[in-house]
Design a protein around this nucleic acid. Structure first.
Lengths: 338, 338
DNA sequence: CTGAAAGCGCTTACAG
DNA sequence: CTGAAAGCGCTTACAG
């Protein structure tokens, strides 16, 4: 009646040793040659695979980290995933990814809850920061790092872009080219990037003494190609800009398309600048000027913050900021070549 | 000396009941009003969160399914992820995603191994099917569904596109438009889609009696924008096609770019057709004709196959095939409008 | 170096 | 309805 169906027990039985010895051999701990060999043979014959949940329960760690991003469809998140994975893998963690989609907070808190237990820590890049989400962030027992800005006074590691400076680079560049009617094609304003990038636009325009009437700003329903196209068509219809700063590259592709439909020549009649500097910026025709908001560096930094936090749960929280840079291409300068 | 640090024990102590009662209440099993109330209050006060690994160890299920795709950066995989997630969520499973990147089999087998234990089943869409990977697929104890074609005789559920018919749709369409020098811009040929789509191209060209010299076929190093651009430039240099069938939409965007650089007008001088019919096909200028290989349907089907397999481990394996369709846009027809 | 035993935090028959 | 107890499959002091 003994419980010998246990797989570890099975291997032990086949090898004629105790389960402790099996465990040790399989974990590379010291064992005699004969035991080692018998265990390895038995394990191979039986096709033994250790049960990860049992191990985790015992040792209190899963060696898994979860990354939750708003939209796996946005290439900028893809490069962030790879950056996070690289850093974590080097420290022996595996990365599991969850896409929270576009749904409101419940999607996110679901995720937060569910991940408890299967991961040792979490990196969260929320598109919208709602009160319920903040509650979960504050109350998290799991080590947590946020990518994006957070209200003051929340004692959780985070890293963010300097959106203000980033959008400023785009606006300054366009103004340098003699553009004056610089419009802003934003994503949803109730999102973290939507809010930050709009603030950056308004600040920069004010600093330069340029007008920012309401009809020069438009809010796409989503940070996607399709939404960018629709919003850009509205924008081109309601004002007469000589330049558009777009809140990300996907929106900018939509703007390029809208301009093409209206027969506007780019950059002569209309200059366009994107944001995030994703791969696609080099492949559009014309190529797209874009502000790199340091997505890869933010991701790497987030991973390192998390590793440090795992190593020392009591260290003070940090909130580094990553600096942006602008890459100028054809969409905003007449003589930029092919 | 008793082990009462256990969180479940803690709640039980606070509520003045046994851990069994706590477990029951928290799992919605019948309990008296008074016990229910005390447990819920205690759990709330303590901010109790059940340990998922312990629960999984006991019940033998994690309620998690893993989806491993070759490249999270390809939009077609993103739509597949969403489709899988939708189906699984309705059945109470959570989806965790792993990107296997571009590395060879070891990446994949790593993943296979590591997922054991934290998930109840797995959907795998391998870019390359190597012998070691096949070994793991055959030897998997975990319920497994493959998206893509598999050698005959492997008794694992799978679903695939009809690439032959799909590429055939593109070639037939171009031939209907009077194109004769139809080139093929493929991704790496040692990949599952690379092999299948090339076969489809050759079959269709032969059926139509069109020439397929070696210089009319080119193999990009990757299924990406950047690789497509490089390969398309080679192609345009080494032959003089009047049409290019591209193995996916990303490659097609690269081809559009290469054509623009050479000043070729599309579709007049060169027609281009992509594959996968992703969002981007509608946003390029000109818009991109593309073959939908049924990615979403493949994903949904895979999820359902897995659910059925979980419900009945002994049912015979199935291998459905999804039919393709072609959407014609500006890049392949002169009069397609704006 | 090796084995017997305790215990990780849960769930679930089994009695009462 | 409720509690005491066994056990999921591992790891790890503790003796020997």
């Amino acid at each position: 009646m003994a419980s010998r169906r246990s797989t570890l027990h099975l291997v032990a039985e086949h090898a004629g040793v105790s389960i402790a010895s099996v465990s040790r051999v399989l974990n590379g701990l010291p064992a005699s040659e004969s035991v080692t060999e018998r265990v390895q043979r038995a394990a191979a014959e039986l096709g033994y695979v250790p049960d990860a949940t049992a191990r985790s329960l015992k040792v209190g760690r899963t060696e898994q980290i979860s990354l939750a991003v708003a939209d796996v469809g946005n290439p900028v998140y893809v490069s962030m995933m790879h950056a996070v994975a690289d850093v974590l893998t080097q420290s022996g963690y595996r990365l599991v990814i969850s896409s929270t989609g576009n749904d409101p907070a419940d999607q996110i808190d679901l995720l937060e809850n569910l991940n408890r237990g299967y991961v040792d820590g979490m990196i969260l890049s929320p598109l919208r920061v709602t009160e319920p989400l903040l509650d979960r962030i504050r109350g998290s027992r799991l080590p947590l790092v946020i990518i994006g800005s957070l209200p003051d006074g929340i004692d959780v590691d985070s890293v963010r872009a300097d959106s203000r400076e980033g959008v400023g680079l785009a606006v300054d560049h366009l103004a340098d080219q003699g553009r004056r009617r610089i419009a802003f094609l934003n994503g949803p304003i109730d999102t973290v990037p939507g809010t930050a990038r709009l603030a950056g636009y308004l600040t920069a325009m004010e600093r330069l003494g340029l007008a920012t009437s309401g009809d020069m700003q438009v809010e796409a329903s989503d940070f996607t190609f399709a939404a960018g196209l629709v919003a850009a068509e509205t924008l081109l219809q309601q004002c007469n800009p000589d330049a558009i700063v777009c809140s990300n590259d996907l929106l900018a592709v939509g703007a390029l398309k809208a301009a093409a439909r209206r027969g506007l020549s780019i950059p002569e009649e209309l200059a366009i600048v994107g944001m995030d500097d994703t791969d696609i910026a080099q492949l559009t025709t014309p190529t797209l000027s874009s502000v790199d908001l340091g997505a890869v560096r933010r991701a790497q930094t987030a991973a390192r913050l998390l590793l440090d936090r795992l190593a020392d749960p009591d260290r003070p929280a940090r909130h580094p900021i990553v600096r942006p840079s602008l890459t100028v291409r054809e969409s905003s300068t007449a003589g930029a070549g092919s």
